[in-house]
């Protein structure tokens, strides 16, 4: 009951955020947090639930950005551009999966990194296609059902709807038989394969699933900024989203969201007040690793449980003394 109340209150405050937030600037920050949260949730499918650490997810994210931007610039409508971007992202995810699943552990990290660097190189050097360093500017955001999305509030609501749908799908995915078997391949891949599961195929589908939601985040990013440049494909981007997942808590549903909030806020808001914001971010990550190595969300839960158990035991001690 209490949990349900909490969820309703959170939802209400999220939906009404444009009303009470006041400044457009903070509404935009909120939209960005949601976009990055979707991206982090997508990566979490691999890092948290499959045990496959990818350092190349910016490649999939950027693929959606670039395909969408390119189709829009070529004069196709938003509908085609979005469909095309998804198709392309899934195709690239499939190649990504087919190549990287030949290895495990460090090998997997390096292959994913290499693939995203290839995509980065193409975006940077194939100037005829991508306009190189200068990137592609798209002229307008879409107008689904005739609703203009130029104002920060409307775009925020749109992003929020996509984000909530993503959360819902992720939650269903986690509990589904497929989600359970995916976690099975993470913990006991040999036993799973002895039980007759096709471990490779399960992981492959997980990569496609993760790629699709990276594409969702990429398209939102494209529409938010109305600009794409090779920076979205950079290693920095891949590393940052991985940090979001790890700092928030891998394998949890809320962790990547909290991690995304942390990074976006420090990078954009705190940097206005603190010149050495890079250092602040570093110190926070180090602190997380020292005090909550499992991530912010599980770490905080552990802390609460500890505090409650202490209170209980102190209460019990007082009682026994009194008796």
């Amino acid at each position: 009951m209490r949990e349900r109340c909490l969820i309703i209150v959170t939802l209400m405050s999220l939906v009404s955020l444009p009303l009470w937030m006041g400044s457009d600037y903070y509404i935009n920050i909120a939209s960005q947090i949601l976009i990055w949260a979707i991206f982090a949730l997508a990566l979490n499918v691999l890092v948290g639930w499959s045990g496959l650490v990818s350092l190349g997810h910016a490649g999939l994210f950027g693929m959606a950005c670039y395909t969408g931007a390119w189709l829009l610039e070529a004069g196709w409508g938003h509908f085609t551009a979005v469909l095309g971007a998804f198709a392309m992202t899934i195709l690239v995810s499939a190649i990504f999966g087919a190549l990287s699943l030949r290895t495990r552990g460090i090998g997997f990290i390096m292959i994913t990194l290499a693939i995203s660097q290839i995509l980065w190189g193409i975006a940077y050097r194939w100037i005829g296609l991508t306009n190189g360093d200068n990137g592609i500017i798209i002229s307008a955001r879409p107008t689904p059902f005739g609703i203009e999305m130029d104002t920060p509030g409307v775009f925020y609501i749109f992003t929020l709807i996509v984000f909530l749908l993503t959360m819902l799908i992720m939650a269903i995915f986690y509990q589904s038989p497929f989600g359970v078997s995916l976690r099975g391949t993470r913990d006991q891949s040999r036993r799973m394969s002895a039980l007759g599961f096709n471990v490779w195929l399960i992981r492959f589908f997980a990569i496609l699933f993760s790629g699709f939601f990276s594409g969702v985040a990429g398209l939102l990013f494209l529409y938010y900024h109305q600009y794409v440049s090779p920076h979205v494909l950079s290693l920095l981007n891949s590393a940052e989203v991985l940090l979001m997942v790890i700092s928030g808590g891998t394998g949890t549903l809320l962790g990547p969201v909290v991690g995304a909030g942390l990074v976006v806020v420090i990078k954009n808001v705190a940097s206005a007040y603190i010149e050495r914001w890079n250092m602040l971010l570093g110190v926070i990550f180090v602190a997380i690793v020292i005090f909550m190595p499992e991530g912010l969300v599980p770490g905080t839960q552990r802390l609460f449980r500890w505090v409650f158990s202490r209170i209980k035991s102190i209460g019990a001690a007082i009682k026994s003394e009194a008796s």
């Binding site: 600009y227 990078k267 206005a272 914001w277």
Partner: peptide, 21 residues
């Protein structure tokens, strides 16, 4: 003064910060 860190995405947010806030 706003520090963009040499990243286009942050530049956009910083421009919004300067204008809107």
């Amino acid at each position: 003064v706003a520090d963009t860190g040499g990243s286009p995405a942050v530049a956009r947010t910083k421009a919004q910060e300067l204008v809107e806030r």
